[in-house]
Write a protein that binds this DNA or RNA. Structure first.
Lengths: 342, 342
DNA sequence: CTGTTAGCGCGTTCAC
DNA sequence: GTGAACGCGCTAACAG
């Protein structure tokens, strides 16, 4: 390990030079109003000149609070999280708070480890956007005295506050829509490692069962959710179900792969084959034909989650708010127009 | 601000309960070999039972070093950075180091602010993957005593070590390839805010000039690099240059938009129209036709950058290594086969 | 508005 | 192999 500069300027150095006590310098930085303007001006100048930077560790230790909060994400590689992150950043901007992201790689152990680390840093708050080991992590989280916000399915219990989507309902809506468009042999393409995905698959199954069209073998999943996975899954699905006429994808990227593969093998979309995605990622609007999908307010969710943490950290609000963000079906060109009456 | 639990278990509490001195407990955690096995076992158990978690702030303050390093990224929304991040994570995994990401939003001020914050936290190291305000930030970075690794174009000077790609050369290679394929009116689509993009545009211009085909108006750029931007840029470009027969895109997502738009307006790819991307993102292999692109070892770059930071932080290597990672042209279906001889 | 006293929780140094 | 004393740099609580 490398040492920091041992000659780094400290609060004490500045105070000595200014001929005041350290606490005055400290106050100039934290409660400027409590220091007389002249003194403040002089000290501020000295701080600048001497290149003083407060030591966060010392600050955190002395004051027992920390201005950075952690965001645990199960996969940063998921483009859906990117909008979410941007929402967080937007809320944090112009705030003294800082965000620390950590990737849990869909791994419960890693999730627990990260939570412990955050706790050990006396973190200002935690946003949990992965929910793999919810039960196990919940145990840890209960001990936390800092605000905890989970981003989950609306039906799952959460330890603290939550900002969520009813994924089950969203997938149900999409499935119903596909049925209304007249598709019958509808597959579900998802991932194995994501709880949200399992929720969505639930909504799909419910509607398909109600329509008497459910078949276990219509549910496909792959570990690595990506456009290439969409290609493979469609290929596999068509082998088993040559009469497949639509796919509901757990995420737009899968749908992108499905769309290209359908094109390659000469399926006409949407006439012979319907595709519905999830998330309404940027590219969804410009595929050919444009992708029908479920829009989820990812940016806003990030913003709200950060908002809850920040406001709670400042003691302005309760910790247990539950926010349901809603969703929207965006009907575009990869599905036929719905039929007037069933 | 909210207070941490004042009743949090400390090293001292554990020591008291174990009937030993605090330092022994501390050693169990950091230098287990120096404590007798029985004592160690007993203490480890107590730590578990009492739920003791070390306070990082106290640790950092006392030891003067910090096990988390910062990664400054100009835009986490750029999918190219995601592989880069994964590379970093991979190197860090099973290490005591932690990573803290910060988004600089292509903003010099923000970049400076973040660097200052990292410095004030006595960070273990800094990876700078945005390079907007290089000159201004360099000033700050020179004062750093921690390892600094920049991820930049190979021709740019860096303050510390660097892991880089010769973006100019890469774009030149791609442009030459398009020429070899017989395309003549080749546009360049890029972004305005990214230095890497400017580098690539340089390589494009150089080759086009040499071929006597350069025209300023063939260079297009948009702030927000995305698939929709690709659609708009192609639309705009074809208005001004109806005879356009190829596009070199600064990033695959633009190319995706271009591909779909070309499809929509009935251009035959690659016969009448060539497209080349950059980065070889996951979907590049499965578009229809598959995307010709420049592959850049993003994952490896992240891995190497983290490796440099970690090894330097551990005092094992020099700070000024310059690593050139190379690139590779992946010829796929969005370009015609190259002609034997010009 | 300014200063004094005390101590945050841990690691370093040097003893035993 | 184990411990005592001290201090990291800063802020809380109380004086004045």
């Amino acid at each position: 390990m490398r040492r920091g500069r041992s000659d780094r300027t400290t609060l004490f150095d500045v105070a000595k030079k200014a001929g005041v006590s350290p606490i005055t310098v400290s106050r100039v930085l934290r409660e400027p109003g409590k220091v007389s303007p002249e003194l403040r001006g002089r000290i501020l100048e000295l701080i600048e000149v001497m290149g003083y930077v407060p030591d966060q560790a010392a600050r955190a230790l002395a004051s027992k609070h920390n201005s950075t909060f952690g965001v645990l994400i199960s996969a940063m590689t998921n483009p859906a999280f990117i909008s979410f992150m941007r929402g967080i950043e937007e809320r944090v901007r112009d705030t003294d708070f800082r965000v620390q992201y950590a990737n849990t790689h869909y791994c419960v152990e890693e999730e627990k480890r990260q939570v412990r680390l955050l706790l050990s840093q006396n973190t200002a708050g935690i946003i949990l956007a992965g929910m793999e080991g919810l039960e196990q992590v919940a145990e840890l989280l209960k001990q936390a005295t800092c605000p905890v916000v989970q981003v989950v399915d609306v039906n799952l219990e959460s330890v603290g506050a939550s900002v969520s989507i009813d994924h089950t309902e969203a997938a149900a809506t999409a499935t119903e829509y596909l049925l209304k468009c007249g598709y019958r042999r509808i597959a579900f393409f998802g991932g194995t490692s994501d709880e949200r995905g399992r929720r969505r698959s639930l909504g799909y199954s419910r509607v398909m069962k109600k329509a008497g069209l459910f078949q276990e073998s219509l549910i496909y999943s792959e570990n690595n959710i990506s456009a290439p996975a969409g290609v493979h899954l469609l290929h596999a699905a068509l082998q088993e179900h040559p009469d497949l006429d639509a796919v509901l994808c757990q995420i737009d990227e899968l749908a992108l792969g499905v769309l290209f593969e359908a094109q390659r093998i000469g399926k006409r979309v949407p006439e012979d084959f319907g595709i519905c995605g999830y998330n309404d990622l940027q590219f969804a609007a410009i595929t050919q034909p444009p992708l029908t999908t479920i829009r989820v307010p990812l940016f806003e969710m990030g913003y709200r989650a950060a908002d809850l943490v920040i406001r709670d950290a400042c003691g302005q609000t309760k910790t247990r708010s539950v926010v349901n963000m809603g969703f929207e079906l965006i009907a575009r060109g990869t599905t036929r127009p719905p039929r007037a009456v069933e």
